[in-house]
Design a protein around this nucleic acid. Sequence first.
DNA 1: GCTCCTTTCTGGTCATACCAGAGTTTTTCT
DNA 2: AGAAAAACTCTGGTATGACCAGAAAGGAGC
Lengths: 237, 237
Amino acid sequence: MEFERLYAPSLKDLFVQQLQGMILSGDLPLGTKLPPERELCQQMHVSRAVVNSGIAELARQGFLEVLPRQGAYVTDYRRNGNMDTLMAIMHYNGGVLGREEIRSILEVRWGLEQMTVSRAIDFASDEDLERLGQYVRALGSNPCPSPPQAAELAFQFHHELTLAGGNSILPLIYLSFKVPCTALWIRFCRKFGVHALHDNVQELYRHLLNRDKEGASRWAQKYLTEAISGSQQIYEA
Amino acid sequence: MEFERLYAPSLKDLFVQQLQGMILSGDLPLGTKLPPERELCQQMHVSRAVVNSGIAELARQGFLEVLPRQGAYVTDYRRNGNMDTLMAIMHYNGGVLGREEIRSILEVRWGLEQMTVSRAIDFASDEDLERLGQYVRALGSNPCPSPPQAAELAFQFHHELTLAGGNSILPLIYLSFKVPCTALWIRFCRKFGVHALHDNVQELYRHLLNRDKEGASRWAQKYLTEAISGSQQIYEA
DNA sequence: GCTCCTTTCTGGTCATACCAGAGTTTTTCT
DNA sequence: AGAAAAACTCTGGTATGACCAGAAAGGAGC
């Protein structure tokens, strides 16, 4: 049995989590004006710096909109959110994603994967492929890596793949995506074993080596479809 | 002639910009260890909070990696970057994107647009379409909106489109993308006129109304291809 | 030569003080 | 009495200094 190390949350973290909870639970409905920072920090017995930086973070995450010298308002995070919002929601749910979110993520990955694979086959150098191979081998090494390690390796593989394609935006998107993606891979490994992930990646890698765009694309589509609605669904833990 | 309002940058902003410049110009090569915060703030005559929060922001942007109680190191922002990095680079270049970045953005948009359009046609309600129509009409209204306004409307249209599709991740990605996307639309309008953007959006909207997936997809592909390598390239101002 | 403890240095965090702009009230002039 | 201008108050933005805990390095003891 493994135990994760504990991190003592800072006052700012606590503040942010508390307000996230209140917003996500509907306790603070959309459009609500927050009390002034000074009032908040008196009620919560913290300094204004904590409240101020916490509100700034919540604004970055799309939960609040702050109008300088007027006040902070709860906004529609579903409409104004970004990747940080998604991670905050994940964190709020204890790292677990809902069925709809999982489907959405896999769909987006399907779209991005097509582009990634296509470009990588056109533009990846031999060194790029060699570097990719290292990740595949690490994924299949003995002793078998733990699910989190395997997920990290799978992510590295895909990230490297986006870099090899020569599109400078794709890696940035992929990296913004890291946390939810990795969470799904971990889940996948827990359910079907690390070897299943290794098999998927290895097969994709084989198509890359053969510069077989059609085959790689079809394979990517296959394993993502399986995960969405086929025999390798990852909705339940 | 219009003049933009001026914002006095804060000390933190200045600090961040200065270090971004030093990193992007290669003055601080990859792997460099930054001096301790106390030393930095002495040399730059600011308080340590400025330096500390500035470094935190640079770390968020993927320019630095900070190991608590060890130091801050310059990292490969091309490898560790995210959307914020892109925006920082844009800002550093005076809001101008390089040819490669533009191509990359349009390519990614092409991939996302396919998915967005496909899902929107399948799942958008009549109210969704009506709301979308408002943006189209606003874009073609008289007097003609300014390029920044038009770009904002085009973005709203596309954002609404992602929301209508029911995929909960797509809007988040799109929103993370807002700044560079809008910059490109502004550029497009400056070069080919707001009406050209309006025509593109309107034609797409027509296909949506007809629930014509094939036609919409082809049209999206057409105008993005034109912008990448056809008659409506937007590389030069 | 090794281990353990102490010191030093690092970034993380927080409480306080001051600043500037938005909104409101009061004053003043017509 | 009505309108314009000034003053005030409230708000978030920012900068400062101080304290805290963990990492690294150096020295004492075995």
